[in-house]
Amino acid sequence: MMSRALLRKTLLCLGLGVSTSLSPLASHAVEKIRLASTIWAGYGPLYVADKLDLYKEHGLKVELQFFSDPGLVVPALASKAVDGATLTYDQVIGAVAKGHKHKVVMPIDYSNGGDAVVAQKGIASIRELAGKKVGYAPLSPPEFLLSYALKSNGMSEKDIQAININPDAVPGAMASGSLAAGVTWEPNVSRVVAMGGGERYHVLYSSKDAPGLITDVLVFDEALVAKRGKAIEALIKGYLAGLEYMHTHPEQSAAIVAEVLGVSAQEATEQMQGVYNMPLAEMGLNFEESDATTSFYGSGRVIAELMLESGQIPALPDIGSTFDSRFIDALTQ
């Protein structure tokens, strides 16, 4: 799975089809949405919808603008340089806590094993990390995963020797033996596990154990949601058409996604196995109030508390203010 931070190039905008209309849109006016994003296997349905012109029947044109630095996407959205964005939910929590009125309108995917705590074979449980050197990047998806794993075992980061390290540097540190465990993402996870013929390290805990904690989402500013709801609905319908095509035409879809990721079709398929694109029928679960990590309330609290403790946000945000479920509610009725 190619990480958001592993993007090696910034692409030019990808044009989508135009014309015709969805009943909510004007019959002779083509709506246009500028969508900021990073390259990520979980965004496959967007790439498929682009390539196959699946927005056309909904009277919509989407201009994808790719950013090499995920940290620049939120400022682009805040400055109205783009109309919407694909973000990780922790980015939304941080932005809303600082006063931005961003709204998640649709969950896209969540990490499903693509992020993991890899450890020496002799470490059999999270509790056995106590007092040991664990490498991870602060305020990143890997830290949120580790924090949740520790909390679930009655521990905190105070119980380990925290080593600040970029996720992409974890394999090298593990190879040198300087870490007992590291938290990273694919393809780094597989690289670590393969060291020493697979005899040195193993996956101790992964995002499969906390489904929904690391979630990618579709986001718009509150004012744009109120003003251009029909265009947002059209975008979501185009995305869902792309997701359906991926299910019915996996090989063709892998080739499309591979072209955007800059890898082979086989590699794209492997990367997509580390994420889970939830179908429309399951999207509503994210908006339901629950402590489960598949709910924005559950994952949001974990993320927000971690950010508050580290001084990254001034106060805990109202989780309910981070999303608007009207579009998914309407489509699932």
Rank of each mutant, 00 (worst) to 15 (best):
S19F: 14
T20R: 02
T20M: 12
S21F: 09
P24W: 06
S27Y: 11
S27T: 09
H28E: 14
A29P: 00
V30T: 15
I33C: 13
R34W: 00
L35R: 02
L35I: 12
I39M: 13
W40Y: 14
W40F: 12
G42S: 12
G42D: 03
Y43P: 01
Y43C: 02
Y47M: 03
V48K: 02
A49V: 01
D50P: 02
D50T: 15
K51L: 06
K51Y: 10
L52G: 09
D53L: 12
D53Q: 15
D53P: 05
K56E: 13
H58Q: 07
L60C: 01
K61I: 00
K61S: 07
K61A: 07
L64V: 14
Q65F: 13
F66V: 08
F66M: 06
F67Q: 05
S68V: 03
P70S: 10
G71I: 03
L72D: 09
L72E: 14
P75G: 00
L77S: 06
A78N: 07
A78K: 12
K80D: 14
A81K: 13
A81D: 08
A81N: 09
G84R: 05
G84W: 01
L87H: 07
L87G: 01
L87N: 06
Q91C: 07
A95H: 01
A95M: 09
A97K: 03
K98M: 07
K98E: 13
G99T: 09
K101D: 13
K101I: 01
H102D: 11
K103Q: 11
V104F: 02
V105L: 12
V105W: 02
M106K: 11
P107Y: 07
P107D: 04
S111K: 08
G113L: 03
D115W: 10
A116D: 11
A116R: 12
V118D: 01
A119G: 11
Q120F: 03
Q120P: 00
G122T: 15
E128A: 15
L129A: 10
G131M: 09
G131N: 09
G131Y: 11
K132F: 05
K132M: 05
K132H: 12
K133E: 12
K133S: 13
V134Y: 01
G135T: 14
G135R: 02
G135H: 10
Y136E: 04
Y136V: 05
Y136Q: 03
A137W: 10
S140N: 04
E143Y: 03
F144D: 00
F144E: 02
F144G: 00
F144A: 11
L146Y: 04
L146A: 11
S147T: 13
Y148W: 14
Y148E: 11
A149W: 10
A149M: 06
K151R: 15
N153A: 07
K158N: 14
D159W: 06
D159C: 08
I160N: 01
Q161S: 12
Q161Y: 04
